[in-house]
Design a protein around this nucleic acid. Sequence first.
RNA 1: GGGCGCGUAGCUCAGCGGUAGAGCACUACGUUCACACCGUAGGGGUCGCAGGUUCGAACCCUGCCGCGCCCACCA
Length: 918
Amino acid sequence: MLEKSFDPAAAEPRLYDGWEASGVFKPSGKGAPFTIVIPPPNVTGSLHMGHALNNTLQDVLCRFERMRGRSVLWQPGTDHAGIATQMVVEREMAKRQEPRRTEIGREKFLEKVWAWKAESGGAIISQLKRLGASCDWSRERFTMDEGLSAAVKKVFVELYREGLIYRDKRLVNWDPKLVTAISDLEVENAEVSGHFWHFKYPLEHGETYRFPVAHDENGEPTEWETRDYISIATTRPETMLGDGAVAVHPSDKRYAPIVGKRCLLPLADRYIPIITDEYPDPDFGSGAVKITGAHDFNDYKVAMRNDIKLYILMDERARMLDADYIPEKYRGLDRYEARKQVVEDIDARGLLIKVEDKKIMQPFGDRSNVVIEPMLTDQWYVDAPAMAKKAIDAVLDGKTKFVPEAWSKTYFQWMRNIEPWCVSRQLWWGHQIPAWYGPDGHCYVAETEEEATREAIIRYTAEGCSLEDINAMRLGEGEGPLLVRDEDVLDTWFSSALWPFSTLGWPNETPELAKHYPTDVLVTAHDIIFFWVARMMMMGTHFMKEVPFRDVYIHALVLDEKGQKMSKSKGNVIDPLTLIDKYGADALRFTLAAMAAQGRNIRLSEARVEGYRNFGTKLWNAARFCEMNGCAFDPGFEPGAAKETLNQWIIDEVGRAAAETTAALEGYRYNDAAGAMYKFVWNVFCDWHLELAKPILLGEDGPAKAETQKATAYVLTQALKLLHPFMPFVTEELWRETAKRKTALIVAPWPDAGEFPANADAAVEINWVIGLISAVRSARAEMNVPAGAKIPMIAVAAGPAASLRLDLHRDLIARLARLDAIHLAGEAPRGAVQIIHEGGVFALPLAGIIDLEAEKARLRKEIDKCDKEIDGIDKKMSNASFVERAPIEIVEENRERRVAFSERREKLTAALQQISKA
RNA sequence: GGGCGCGUAGCUCAGCGGUAGAGCACUACGUUCACACCGUAGGGGUCGCAGGUUCGAACCCUGCCGCGCCCACCA
């Protein structure tokens, strides 16, 4: 006996453990492989709504394909998340007042991180299990485990040898808080209120020029003033100490007299040239730009073009350097302290023209939230522009498809404008770059230190060094290593980029790699297209010579109630586990699947989760009803052999639902699939089939009852299968409880389209019955007939088809419309409510009970409705070009509707006349 | 400055060329033997605005208004 309701808290863990223990999460069978690699969550992570959505969608696909007989591998794992994890561990150390990481050193610190990972890392894995994720956990990987680290090294070395990775000194985004370089993608630009300071840079030798200060309508100068300075404007005054020039546009006549001359850089007391370059916009500010090549990306380019000297101003924490070109009083100051001081000093010298308030775009580190400083440093770069070519072509050629397709635009836009990817990070937690430096600074890139050393020895030997000479160069009195390893680690996304093949065993030629690469689909959110999708495409097409996935399904972002992006740093994450506790995993999953079609945002409403929890309960109760009424699943039941119209109809209906669900899932239309099943189970199976079946099931034993029991059980079984990808727990439990089965539902075969014989005649007949019942109910309610009252119905001048149907389904019509008798008659009795339904007029003799005026009003309202429809159709049909140009089916359809409505109208009018006589 | 997207029932959103939909909320009725996490019936929308294309537009095109997101070096 089924319990009164489903208890998710008790059943879910039990069912999940059962699945996992039985090995059904592992790929098996002879079917074609179906593969998804999970977007690896951070080890520091805990399940948020985004994960819940992302993994629900993947699990739906995996369960669907597994039931369809594919050999499914959902490859799970976690990401080491360099910066995030290092920050977490450092924060914990600080909380415990332990020595800082720089004090204990790299090795000890890394031990601590690994210990942290072993203890608290990967909590998200058990959370994914609570969601029901059917990953093959026996294959779980971590981006820093042995195999994946080997892949990283190999990739780095090969790309280096191909010239696609190189070391370069250039301006990079520097995070002064985390003390590391970061990539362009990790910089978030935000508008803040700032200031625009206007300074005078005096000309050398007290030189003067005439500067126009007023113009006529033709833009010709009309007034001049004599200036002995050039006016520049800046939002970052502290950087003036590193100016190497002042630039003006070559066409800017105002400054033509002083181009090529020099001006004094105040405070620094250096003279810098006034040059021309295309970069300055004459209409902006004063038209003259100070050029700080070492601390501004634009200025850097100008400096490179014009051979302007670069002055590095700050150290790795953005404090002013102890350099001879920086006046002593500024040295050691933080950049903001220096700014204040510079402004003060300029003002004191009478060189401050004005200060404007101004909104400025400032770059922030996405992790540290601190203003990024452009810094001139040595870093490692991936030649992304070169590697992007194949990745772009793969999408152009349709080898990888974005779903929805529109996202490929975003992909192309980014890929076609891609910049070199800075992959080195000045962190400790991560893959240390496999590069070593010799005593002379020469760089050797190899997978091992031995190999690098060998290369070095060969090189020094070739240069004429003897073994003794070489040994003498070794550290530690000639006993230690010859080379020193690069301290930096790689960007976390570097290892993530290899995920689709590194997890399958690459660089080894494993059977899994052969079978499961390329993967079928990547399921992810759009905010990760650049970070991850694009880079996997580059690495995959390069190393595997094949795309990493056929499809990329991009789903919406889950936002918080206010429409804000959820993030740990904002502290606005909603815990899906709370919802699972409250409503069960099935309810949450169904909600997310049903909302998957939404645009770019999903704002989760708890009411919706509650509604779908109710849906699960509805299903449960339907199964209980079946159980109570002897609807036992019979494996020998032949749906095609059903004789009862009701059974033929419901089999036809479940067939439609199956076809719709299957087609929707094949097209990643999760909401349509979920919606189709919701409607079928609730509005067709429960609302009508079970109700219509009651008279039979509660009636006398006989062939009709026996068949209905089996057919009902059969349809319920199909529904359980079709719902399983969305609601795995409750369906599996019902599957198990309602019959003895050889296999679990999770591996039961997906309903095949050919399984359900369509039956148009049965559909017409039952839909007629449903229509009649609905019409009677509606009339009763409108006439305020008490819900409990049973009344007779008289079929007036029913045609042969209607008479037959009435006769066949007398019991169930009577039951559902709450009638105590159904008679046939030539005409309606006086004062009766008359229902116009296809095939006849059905009268409810309520004389004396009903309000005649109300009935007249009801009929008039119906007539009005018909008139409106008829008018609309007539308007169309009288339009010659409609009849001429619209497709025949449409015209025909309108003709038919016109006939149906006018017939209905006639009967309604007759009914109105009849009642008016009374 | 470029690019993308969104404005449909009170709320959250589907639909995207031929009869306006769902969930929740709302109203009335209902202790009918699966289910009140329920049933029955019902109310509620000039589909942001204005043009255009079309026999026909919520749906396609153009412009405008209002939101949102992404990318970008205006010092």
